[in-house]
Amino acid sequence: MANEWRALDYWDGKNDLNNDADALQDATEKAKTIQHSHEWIIVRDSEYVNVQTTDTQVALSLQLGIQAALAAVINITLGDTNQGKKVAHDLKQFMRTRQHNSQRTIIENSKEIQVTTTDTDIAVNLQAMIQILVALIGQLDVL
């Protein structure tokens, strides 16, 4: 163990602005969650790590937009009835089944790392949601 190379033990890189902070740096943990799709990026004992992930904020707002549209269609056509609620519930149920993907990225004991992750699950899920919406209004002869 004593011979294990540790990224934070020593660093003579030109970007190093705060030498003292290096050894004291605690494990950093970052997690982003959107609905049931989890993305964990754990950065531990490392520095100068650049992380680029899927823009979950955009995905989330699109998701809310589609959900609102679905709710509007159901509300107009079926009203605020039990039947309407059940249809909405069943449709949501399906969307939920598409959201159990998770990915984990662990960066440990590293320096100057560039990470890019793509959450294809979010994209697929958004596509599925819009497909449901299109199919629903298609049935109602809107398209």
Partner: peptide, 30 residues
């Protein structure tokens, strides 16, 4: 179907087409 007026249909159509375009763009970007 009968509960949807022509205005409703037009509004829904525009809303869904707009959302679809945004989703397509998002999927393309990713």
């Amino acid at each position: 179907k009968n509960k949807l007026s022509e205005e409703d249909k037009q509004a829904l159509k525009e809303m869904v087409e707009d959302l679809k375009a945004q989703v397509d763009e998002f999927v393309k970007q990713n």
